[in-house]
């Protein structure tokens, strides 16, 4: 296995099943991550409020506060921290609810260890890239729009609103490559860390949302243009 460049990243593991948590902690430690284990929703929020973390692995069925509530409270304070939901609940409604609350990824138990470790690495990679590009230029303006990539707040059409982490990362990646064609596949790789479950249509849906937020006329975009059979291109006329 290649050397992990995210060694030392701090992971908050929220899992009430002790037997599973011990194994996960061992494997994450072996990968070089620092792991803090919370056994219930209350403890998870206590740790989150008092310590700094780079990623959260979150179960849903937890004592006191469930995983959805933990994700909601975490997102209120930190819109950019990656959250991976790891749960036995396989119903599509749970998955949609989790992702809507701001989870970045969703895995169901039983899972494959290598897949979990790759997803964790992918999420940390995206977080690091986002952090690096945000430090250099946290606020970006185009047209009458203003976006603060540090707190994910945007102002457009006279209104202020919150972007999701994926929306902000998609936009950031397009802005970083201003004037260049970015393929859907590239966006999937950079923003979503491509998985079999995520299809290229997902990218199109995000672009539709971003155009609705920022384009004066979403049907005739001037900032985020579609390039036929190639992808998208950001321009700032």
């Amino acid at each position: 296995m290649k050397k992990n460049k995210f060694v030392g990243s701090k992971i908050l593991l929220v899992e009430d099943e002790e037997t599973l948590a011990v194994g996960l902690e061992y494997n994450l430690n072996e990968e070089g991550y620092q792991v803090v284990w919370a056994q219930d929703g209350k403890q998870a929020l206590d740790f989150f409020n008092t310590k700094e973390f780079d990623l959260i692995i979150l179960d849903i069925m937890l004592p006191y506060y469930d995983g959805f509530e933990v994700a909601r409270q975490v997102r209120e304070k930190s819109p950019e921290i990656p959250i991976l939901m790891l749960t036995a609940r396989t119903h599509v409604d749970d998955k949609v609810h989790g992702l809507a609350l701001g989870a970045d990824d969703y895995m169901t138990k039983p899972f494959h260890l290598q897949e979990l470790l790759l997803r964790v690495k992918g999420m940390l990679k995206r977080k690091m890239w986002y952090k690096e590009v945000t430090i250099s230029q946290p606020v970006y303006c185009f047209g009458n729009n203003e976006i603060n990539f540090a707190n994910l707040k945007a102002r457009a059409k006279g209104q202020e609103f919150q972007l999701t982490a994926h929306e902000a990362m998609t936009l950031k990646y397009l802005i970083e490559n201003k004037g260049k064609i970015v393929s859907r596949k590239e966006l999937l790789d950079k923003v979503w860390n491509i998985t079999s479950e995520v299809e290229t249509r997902t990218v199109d849906n995000f672009i539709v949302r971003l155009r609705k937020y920022f384009e004066p006329n979403p049907a005739q975009p001037i900032f985020i243009k579609s390039i036929r059979s190639a992808g998208y291109m950001f321009t700032d006329p």
């Binding site: 099943e17 037997t19 194994g23 061992y26 494997n27 609940r89 119903h91 138990k109 039983p110 260890l113």
Partner: peptide, 25 residues
């Protein structure tokens, strides 16, 4: 059904995790 799924899958996930760990490391 929701509860039993949780109760069956959690120990199964744990057993699978340890087997894969011992196989991989």
């Amino acid at each position: 059904i929701g509860n039993i799924t949780h109760e069956l899958k959690s120990p199964l996930a744990s057993i699978q995790l340890y087997l894969e760990t011992m196989n991989m490391r």
